[in-house]
Simulated assay, not measured.
Amino acid sequence: MRIGELATGTGVSVRALRYYEEQNLLTSERTPSGQRQYPDSAIDRVLLIQQLYAAGLTSKSIADLLPCVVNGEATPELLTRLAAERDHIDTRIADLTTARTRLNAVITAATTNLRTGQHCQRP
């Protein structure tokens, strides 16, 4: 498939796909006219890259981990690194959950104050 088709199939911009290639996260073949051609498996790979970015990994980390994740191979060092990334994500989730709880409390208090006619006074 061509780069535009991969972009459409994954929801990732053409620019991002080119960046993935620059970072050695994704590979393509070139047609005689110079257009990029991707295998059908590129869709799953791009979606995995997106998930790893969303988890907070850098392109360098993803490039190091991707071959092992895709091939299912794991060394003790890789498992340690993946566990550390997972722990980092767990910490971020806990922080976001705490922030959401606080926001919910503020929204509840503000809604109650509006119903009773009380308004926030600025200092």
Rank of each mutant, 00 (worst) to 15 (best):
G72D: 06
Q23H: 12
T58Q: 00
T108S: 09
K60N: 14
L48G: 01
S59D: 11
E73C: 07
T101D: 10
T111F: 05
M1D: 07
T108W: 11
H119P: 03
T8C: 06
A84G: 09
L78P: 06
G11R: 02
I89D: 00
Y20L: 03
H119E: 05
I93F: 00
Q50K: 13
Y38R: 10
G9L: 05
I107F: 12
Q118M: 15
K60S: 11
Q23E: 15
H88Y: 07
Q121G: 15
T111C: 10
T8Q: 15
C120M: 15
R18S: 10
T98H: 15
R15C: 02
E29H: 05
L47F: 00
R81S: 13
S13A: 05
L82R: 02
L103C: 07
T31H: 02
A55T: 00
L82S: 06
L47R: 08
G9K: 14
L26R: 04
L26V: 03
D40A: 10
I93E: 07
I89T: 12
E29G: 08
V70I: 04
A63G: 08
T111H: 08
S61H: 01
Y19V: 06
A16F: 06
R115G: 03
Q37T: 04
A16P: 11
R45M: 04
R92M: 03
I107C: 14
T75G: 03
A16L: 08
E85Q: 05
A54K: 01
P123W: 05
R100L: 00
D44G: 04
R15I: 01
T27S: 12
Q118F: 13
R36W: 03
A94P: 10
V12L: 04
R36P: 05
A94E: 15
P39W: 03
D44E: 06
N71I: 12
Q121N: 12
L82F: 10
T10W: 01
I49L: 04
G9I: 00
A84I: 09
L66H: 04
Y53D: 01
R30T: 03
D44A: 13
A105L: 07
P123R: 10
I89W: 10
Y20Q: 06
Q50P: 07
N71P: 04
L6T: 00
R81D: 14
L82G: 09
T98E: 14
D87W: 02
L65P: 00
T91I: 13
P76T: 09
N24F: 13
H119C: 11
R100C: 04
L6A: 01
P123G: 02
A105G: 08
